[in-house]
Design a protein around this nucleic acid. Sequence first.
DNA 1: AAGACCAGTTAACGAGATGTTAAAAAGGTT
DNA 2: AACCTTTTTAACATCTCGTTAACTGGTCTT
Lengths: 229, 229
Amino acid sequence: MSTTRVLLAEDDKSLGYVLQEYLTMNGYNVQLASDGKEGLKLYQRGAFDICILDIMMPIMDGFTLASEIRKMDEDIPIVFLTAKSLKVDKLKGFNVGADDYLVKPVDEEELSARIRAIVRRSKKPEKQTGQVYELGSYSFDYQNQRLSLGREQITITQKEAQILKALCDNEGNILDRNTALREMWGQSDYFNRRSMDVFISKLRKYLSKDPSISIQNVHGRGFILKVDQ
Amino acid sequence: MSTTRVLLAEDDKSLGYVLQEYLTMNGYNVQLASDGKEGLKLYQRGAFDICILDIMMPIMDGFTLASEIRKMDEDIPIVFLTAKSLKVDKLKGFNVGADDYLVKPVDEEELSARIRAIVRRSKKPEKQTGQVYELGSYSFDYQNQRLSLGREQITITQKEAQILKALCDNEGNILDRNTALREMWGQSDYFNRRSMDVFISKLRKYLSKDPSISIQNVHGRGFILKVDQ
DNA sequence: AAGACCAGTTAACGAGATGTTAAAAAGGTT
DNA sequence: AACCTTTTTAACATCTCGTTAACTGGTCTT
C-alpha cells in the first residue's frame, strides 16, 4: 500500500512540528499548514488520505476549513484537534462529518493509531477480487470454487477447493500430509489420509487436460503441485 | 437504510441499560450482553453493524471478545469502552483493530456521534437510486420490486427482491448462504435456510422464461446467478 | 524377495443439503 | 371480522459429497 498522505493544519508551530516529525517517522507523508487558509490551499493542491485539523486557528478555523474540504470531497476522513473539551464543539465536529475528535494534549502514538484505524476503513472501496491462481492453462478461483480451462468452467466442491488451494499455496514445494490433514480435517488418522487420497485422485482428473500440470506424491510425506514450463 | 444493529457488551448493568436506552431512543437496534461470553453468543447468532465492548468484564474480557469476533468477521467496527485511561491499553485496543476507544464516563451523545461516524464509513457504498439490473432479457428494478420481460411486468415481494438483488450484486460469483441469511434475516438457522430455499425456488420460476439465466446451487456454500451469452 | 506400509482408483453408502409444493402463520387492509 | 398478501413451517422427494470399503499396485526396509 502506498504511504498515507496527511494534511495537518495546526497553528501552534511547535506542536505542529512535533506531530509532523512523529508521523513522518511512522511512515506518513505529512504536509503542515499553519492556518485554515493555508490548509485549504494545500488541500486543493495535493491529494490526501486524511486531514487533521486544529479547530482554533487564525484566519480560518477548523470547522470552516472542514466544510470547505467537504465541499470538494465528501468522503475524505477528517480528524479534529482541540485544546478544550467542549461538548458542543465535539458534537458540532461530528456533525460536520468528523471521523474522530481528539482533545489536546494529544498523544502521538494514539494519534497514529487512530489515523491507522480510520484510514484502514476508508481505503477499501473496491471489493476484493477473490484471489485467482493460474495453473498452466487452468485458472482456479478459490472463493468461488471455480476451475476453468478456456471457456469450460466447473464448480468444484468445498474440500476439493480447500486442498487445491493448499497445493497452489505450496506450488513446487511439498504440501505436508499431516499439516494439511490437521488444517483441513482437524486431525490426522488413517481414514482422513485415505480420504485425502480420494480428493487428490479427483483433482488429478480435473487437471488432466493440461499435461504440464501434475500432482506428485512424495512417499510418506505429502504431495507437490508441479507446473512445468 | 436499515437500522444500525449494535452489540453492546457491558458488565455494569446500570451503565449498560442507560446506554442501551439512549441508543435505542436514537434509532439503533441494540442487543446487550453482560459479559464477554454472552457477547460472543449474541454475535454468533445475529448480524451486527458495530460492536461496543467494555474491556473489563468477567469470564471473557473485551480484548479477547474482540479477537474472537475478528476471527469471524475481520471487517466489523469495534469500539472499546474502559474505565481507566491506560495508554498501553489504548494502543493494544487499536492494535487488535479497534475503530475507537472511549474512556468512561462516556457521554451518550458523543458515543452516538462516534458510532454514526464509524458506521458511515464501514457501510458499503450502496449503488445509487433507480438502479436497474439487466438480466438476460429480463430487467429488474430493485427499488420498485419490479421484474419485467418485454412488456410483461410483475411486482415481486420484498424478500424476493432482496435476494434477487444480492444475487445480481454477485452475478457469476457465489452468494454465500450464511452471509445472505445474516444480511437479510439477521441470523442463520435451519428455518431461515429452508425459507431461503423457498424464495430461490420462486425466483427460478420467475426467471424461467429466459433459459440463459440460471440460479445454481453450490452445495453447502450458497447460490450463483449465471447469465450465459 | 518378502513383508509392511503407502498410494491410486473406483464404487457404494448415508448424513445432510436442496427442490418443490402446500399448508399454516403472520401482517396488513377494508 | 373477512380478506388479502407475504413469509414461515412442514412434508416429502431427490441430490450431493465426504467418507469408507475394497481392490490394486507401488515403495521402502530388512
